[in-house]
Structure formats: structure tokens, C-alpha cells
Design a protein around this nucleic acid. Structure first.
Length: 457
RNA sequence: GUGGAUGUAGCUCAGUUUGGUUAGAGCACCAGAUUGUGGCUCUGGUGGUCGCCGGUUCGAGUCCGGUCAUCCACCCCA
């Protein structure tokens, strides 16, 4: 039978196995976040467009899913308006909401709306799906989960350090080797200023971001578009590329004397210095080509990548000074990072990083072989459940035993309890170990003991 | 938005180069070998408008045109 059903492009269903694995990732994240004093919040799937638009740059605005108004939204639209072909204005009349694009902007909105109930500095974590109307491909979905932590109301660089520490801890628990990339907007700005291209700053950063990703010729081509001085920039980048963190810092200090550069370097130096003795599992690299597209970042910026599998970045974040100002609350500096749970999942699946015992929640299947023993079977199942042992009772009594055992086998059950005439008469059950194939008829107390013993190791 | 690839059974895919009886395989499913015993093995079976529309032809899964969908890369990003 051909059934013609589908789900929207870029979205996915998750099987029980996948959900369990995903929950494992979420739980690791929650545990670490909680350990550092972060509290959970949740915000609605949709926000008003005035909250969302203009925060993610021109490209980002295009990728926001819009929700059409309910009811007869054409009611107030005259033919004249349609003839004028001002589509963006028309759109604004029939569409006032959109699906959230990330968790940082809704968080900023949340802080503004709730600031009189919040004690600052406020540390929150948030694990929820976001939606982007991107073209899907490997590691890119239209619906995916972000797991954000942010600290707002504190300018201290200790927050940056803590974020690095948390990231390192998360990825060492998940057993994914990563490299933590950091940079600073002021350093980028300092470079731009030196070459008199502050006017083209955003463009400059997006070009810089492609260093090493596209071939040198194309890179030079795009640099030419914004400055005639491109040779010096190339020269500079080539010098910097092979240096280690402290050499890079020295070099920039010596060659750039503007105040922005000085403050950026100061921050990076402080962060690197104070993470040195934290025994981090993963390396931090100061990467001056790291730019990040989101226009709201103003200070440190982060990105985390796997060193074993290329699937884009696993985390991205940074410091933003003015995000809440747009919503009318100035002077609230914040810093945060977002963990891409779906990519973390993909990488763990691909590199086989999930712990083996992750699917072990299924323990006992009860098979009742005749209607007469239903009460007896249910009583035994209850006894086990009272001891917190997960038990499933096969519901269709008259299904062949062969099929029920095959069911147990396919679902990975460790134990099957068989209940029939013999067992009932002797007030016992037959315990079958599906792994070894052995079985014995025992009193219920003995069975419980065996199952509990197994549970312990 | 630009470029490349792929659509055949529930799933993974062969077959398309060179058109030719009834379109195959593995997995999954059902039945049996085994009426109170799963996995392994063996035997048999169910299951297809070959993405869709049109064209060429005596004849199209195969050739041509269009269309839709999916995947990959670029862009950007988690």
C-alpha cells in the first residue's frame, strides 16, 4: 500500500532509540549547566515579528518563518494596496508573528519584560527548538534544538572563562574532542581601523571569516572589493596564521596601536591566562579569522568545532552589550553560548560515542499464557514495579508464545516471566534469561532477587 | 539565491550504458520445519501504477522533454 504522507522539508521524526540518545545529551548539558548555577527558562515558540526582525542581519530576517494571521486577513486589504506591489508592507499587514530563530533574542526580550523580578547577574539555560527557513543539508535542519546558556548583567570576563570551562566539561563528558576558538570583535575592528575600512566592517568580517575556507585567489578577490590595501592584509594574515596564541597576541600588540585593538587583546589575554590552570581537556585557539555573522556581538566571540568530524560548528556565542537596549533596557551586558544538540547528536552517532548501556531501560516482559492467570500475572508485574523495575505485560494473551518471545527478543528484553498452568499451580513463575537462553521455575521472591542483583551491576 | 547528484518493494539497493516475455536481491513481515520457548539455520509466501506528466517507438524502469521531491556542495549557520 502506498501512503502518501510526508513531513515538511528539514524536519525529522525521532524513533524511541533516537529520543533516548537525544535525552542523554540534554541531560549531560542540564547537569553541567546546573552545576554552574544556571537556571532554566522557557519562552514561546513564536514571538512577534517586531521582536525578531532586524536582529540577525539581512540574511537572517529572510530565514525567519512567518506565521500568517488567523481569520480573514485579507479583509482590510484593498485592491489598490495589492496593485502597488509593496509586498513587504502587505506582508506586515497579514503577518505579525514568527517562529523563534534562536534563543538569545527571546532571552533578551524576556529579560526586558521581567527585569524587575530578576536578580542580576542572571544566569539562565534554555533548551528548546528553533526554526530557520534555510535550505537543509548535512548538519543543517529547519527545526533544531539549541541549548543556550547566558549570563546577563555582568561585564566580568569571569563569565567568558566559565563558558569555556562549561563547554570543555560538556565535551569531555560526551567524549567528543573539540577545539575552542575565540576572538574579539574589537580585535577585528582594530584591524579594520588600521586599514581604514571601518565603513565596511561587517563586510570585512564576513570576508575574513572565509580565510582558509575558500581558496586564496577568491579570498584576495573579495578583499580587493573593499580596500586597495589588500596586499598588506594578506601579508599580515599569512604571518599570523602559523603563530601560537601568545605569539599572535605579541604580534598584534606590536603592530596595531589603536585603542580598540588594545582592549580586545587585553580581554583575550586575560581569558587565556586564567584558563591555563583549569586543566581543560580541549585546546583553546585564538583565531583572528573567527568573525561570526550575528550582528549583535560586541566583545568576545566563541565557536567550537569537532576535531574529528567536520559538520560545521557545534557551538557559537559571544558577548553582546546592547541587545536589551533595542527593547528599551540599556546597560545590560551579556555573554552566552549555544550548543547545537542536533549536530552533537549527529557527530556522536557517526563516531559511535554513545555509551553502550544507554538503551538498557527495558528489563522484564511478562507473558501470561491463559486468561485464567491474568490476575496472577498483573500482581507479579505490580510487585516488580513497586521495586522500580520496568515491566511490560504482553497484552494479547492468545498470541503464540513463539511470537511473544520473538517480540521480547526484538525489543532487547533481558528477562521474560512465563506464567501458565504449571507456574500458577505452584505459586511460581518461570524466569527466562533471554541473553543466555536459560530458564528456571522459581518462587516470585527468588525471581525478584535475581532481577535486583542483575540491576546492581 | 547558485551548482551537482539521485528518485525502482516497508527499508537499503541492483537493473538504465546497448529499449524486448512475468522487474530482481538482501533486510523486514507472514506461514511452516518446532501445538509451553526467541536469536541461528532451512523451506515457502505476501509485497512494485520503476516519483509524476507528456513525447518517441510495434514495444519504455531503460531514450527525449517537462515537472515535483530528496540529498550533497556553495552562501550562511547550530
Amino acid at each position: 500500500m502506498k501512503h502518501n504522507v510526508s513531513i515538511p522539508k528539514g524536519t525529522r521524526d525521532f524513533t524511541p532509540q533516537q529520543v533516548i540518545k537525544r535525552q542523554y545529551i540534554f541531560n549531560v548539558l542540564k547537569d553541567v549547566f546546573t552545576k554552574y548555577g544556571y537556571l532554566p527558562i522557557e519562552t514561546p515558540a513564536m514571538e512577534t515579528l517586531s521582536t525578531l526582525l532586524g536582529k540577525y542581519g539581512e540574511e537572517g530576517d529572510k530565514l525567519i518563518f512567518r506565521i500568517i494571521n488567523s481569520g480573514n486577513f485579507f479583509e482590510n486589504i484593498s485592491d489598490d494596496l495589492i496593485k502597488k506591489e509593496n509586498y513587504s508592507y502587505l506582508l506586515s499587514l497579514i503577518c505579525e508573528k514568527g517562529l523563534r530563530y534562536d534563543l538569545t533574542v527571546p532571552f533578551a526580550r524576556y529579560v526586558v519584560m521581567h527585569h524587575n523580578q530578576i536578580t542580576f547577574p542572571f544566569k539562565r539555560y534554555q533548551i528548546q527548538p528553533v526554526w530557520r527557513a534555510d535550505k537543509p543539508q548535512k548538519g543543517r535542519y529547519r527545526e533544531f534544538y539549541q541549548c543556550d546558556i547566558d549570563v546577563i548583567g555582568s561585564k566580568s570576563l569571569l563569565n567568558e572563562i566559565e563558558i569555556i570551562q562549561i563547554s570543555d566539561e560538556v565535551f569531555s563528558i560526551l567524549n567528543i574532542p573539540v577545539i575552542i576558538l575565540i576572538n574579539h570583535r574589537n580585535i577585528l575592528y582594530g584591524i579594520a581601523k588600521e586599514f581604514n575600512i571601518e565603513n565596511n566592517f561587517i563586510k570585512f568580517t564576513t570576508i575574513l571569516d572565509k580565510l582558509g575556507k575558500i581558496d586564496q585567489e577568491k579570498f584576495i578577490e573579495s578583499l580587493k572589493e573593499i580596500t586597495l590595501d589588500y596586499k598588506r592584509i594578506i601579508e599580515l594574515l599569512n604571518i599570523i596564521e602559523n603563530k601560537n596564541n601568545s605569539e599572535k597576541i605579541m604580534f598584534l600588540k606590536d603592530n596595531f596601536k589603536n585603542t580598540e585593538m588594545a582592549s580586545g587583546i587585553n580581554d583575550i589575554e586575560f581569558i587565556l591566562e586564567n584558563t591555563k590552570e583549569l586543566n581543560l581537556t580541549n585546546n583553546i585557539r585564538f583565531e583572528i579569522s573567527l568573525a561570526r555573522g550575528l550582528s549583535y556581538y560586541t566583545g568576545t566571540i566563541f565557536e567550537i568545532k569537532s576535531t574529528e568530524y567536520n559538520i560545521g560548528s557545534l557551538c557559537g556565542g559571544g558577548r553582546y552589550d546592547n541587545l536589551t537596549e533595542i527593547f528599551g533596557l540599556p546597560g545590560m551586558s551579556g555573554v552566552g553560548i549555544s550548543f547545537g544538540a542536533d549536530r552533537i547528536y549527529d557527530i556522536m552517532e557517526h563516531l559511535n560515542k554513545f555509551p553502550n548501556n544507554i538503551m538498557n531501560s527495558l528489563k522484564v516482559l511478562v507473558i501470561c499464557m491463559d486468561q485464567k492467570f491474568i490476575k496472577y500475572s498483573l500482581t507479579i508485574a505490580s510487585k516488580l514495579r513497586n521495586l522500580n523495575i520496568p515491566v511490560e505485560v504482553y497484552p494479547d494473551i492468545d498470541v503464540k508464545l513463539k511470537k511473544q518471545l520473538s517480540f521480547a527478543n526484538n525489543k532487547g528484553y533481558k528477562y521474560v516471566l512465563l506464567i501458565g498452568e504449571n507456574e500458577y499451580k505452584n505459586n511460581a513463575v518461570t524466569l527466562k534469561d533471554m541473553y543466555s537462553g536459560n530458564q528456571q521455575t522459581l518462587e516470585i521472591e527468588e525471581v525478584i532477587k535475581i532481577i535486583c542483583d542483575y540491576e546492581k551491576h
